[in-house]
Each structure stands twice: as C-alpha cells, then as structure tokens.
Design a protein around this nucleic acid. Structure first.
Length: 218
DNA sequence: TGCCAGGCCCTCTTTAGGGCCTT
C-alpha cells in the first residue's frame, strides 16, 4: 500500500489541510493553520499541526466557521516559519488533500512566500471519492465521513481534525480498492489516475489496469 | 466599502450554464 513508484521502500503519503482567510490566494487570502498527517501501510504514523500568523485579518465569518480567532493567530509563529517546518515534515512524500485544487494553491503560494517550492504531486481525495463512492449523497468531507461510518476526529474546519479525517477516508478507499477490485498496490500515481477516470467507468478501468499489472508480473 | 475563485462534472451540453467543493 502506498509503495513509492521507484524502488522497494514502503513510502508514506502526506495528507494535508489548510485553514485560510478566504478561498483564493490570488485574491489576498492567506493561510491561518496547516496540518499534515503521514499515512503508511494504512495507518497514520506521524502528525504536524500549527497555527500561523500571516499578518492579515480573519473575517468574522471565517472566525465562526473555523473557531480560529484573530487573537489566536496573533500569538502564532510567522507563516513562513510554519511553512518551512511543514515542508520539512512532509519532505518528498507525495501529497493528498480533500479538494486538492484548493489546498495545492495555498501550499504553493505560502511555500513560495517562504522561498521554497513543491517537488511532489498532489492527489485529491474528493475526486477519488466521487469514483469509489459515487452513491454517497455528497462528497463533502463531513458527509463522506458519515457515509463511510468513520470516526469524527475533532471539530470540522480545524486543520488537524480535517487532515485526520481525510486520511481515514483515504485508508477506507484503499481498503475498498483492495476488497472490490483486488488492487494489490494503491500507489499515489494510481490515485491520480483514478481521479481522472470517467464517471461510472471505474470498474472497467480497474479491470484493464489489473490485466496489465498481471501481465507485467514475472 | 464591497466584493472577490476555479476546477470538476452534470445536463435541458459541446456556440453554456450552474451546482459542488474547499475557507
């Protein structure tokens, strides 16, 4: 599970989550909190979480949504310092986020401000969930946690709780891929391929994938 | 001051529009 493409070393993936002041870093929104959890062999093996001070005001609506106040962020370490620590924690492990289009923008923007750059790819647990659980009533993180009967890890819209829940969702989807489709090895590359498979084509796509994998084995 | 996004995905589609999802 989550074996790195190159070599035989079992490789973790890092599931990350940001809390921010808005929806787009291109329009002035900044991060207020980040969390990352490392998943290896189907379990969370390490965690990182920190509030961060980007020197911008959090709108009242976002304070209510996340429970992260301006006072809390004022006491937090500078954003660049936190991002460097988060990047060191994550290392070169491939990344996963729930709606990765959102988190990848903030990861790249905040890391750029800290004069660092991303070297690994992102996979999206929401896009994978749309394929693996097309019958779920919604593909919001909270709705998927309820649908899959997974434990609520803490307050929604706090970075560590959301990252933990995205990680448990990912592990559950891995289990489904093993159980339903007998996928031997769920790599990050496979997740990235699954997230672009057409709707209701996952069965057919994985059948072809398995045939190719079996044929390639010595 | 007030407002602000964008990629995915469906359908009453492809010469488009609108909901979902993230904060």
């Amino acid at each position: 599970m989550f074996r790195h493409k190159k070599g035989d070393v079992m490789e973790a993936v890092a599931v990350i989550d940001f809390e921010t002041t808005g929806l787009s870093p291109d329009h002035g929104a900044r991060a207020t909190e980040i969390a990352a959890v490392l998943v290896r062999d189907g379990i969370v093996v390490d965690r990182y979480q920190s509030l961060m001070n980007a020197g911008v005001r959090i709108p009242p609506f976002i304070e209510d949504l996340t429970g992260i106040s301006n006072a809390m962020v004022r006491k937090a370490p500078p954003a660049a310092e936190v991002m460097r620590a988060a990047a060191d924690f994550v290392g070169e492990h491939p990344l996963v986020a729930h709606n990765a289009a959102f988190d990848s923008k903030f990861w790249d923007a905040e890391l750029g401000r800290a004069r660092r750059s991303r070297r690994q790819g992102f996979a999206c647990s929401m896009l994978v969930a749309r394929r693996v659980f097309p019958q779920a009533p919604s593909h919001k993180l909270g709705a998927l946690i309820e649908f899959a009967k997974l434990p609520v890890a803490g307050r929604y819209h706090r970075a560590l709780a959301d990252a933990e829940m995205a990680a448990s969702l990912l592990i559950r989807m891995e289990d489904e891929l093993h159980r339903r489709y007998q996928v031997v090895e769920v790599t990050h590359d496979l997740l990235r391929e699954i997230q672009s498979v057409q709707k209701n084509q996952l069965d057919r796509w994985l059948e072809r994938f398995q045939r190719k994998s079996t044929a390639a084995r010595p």
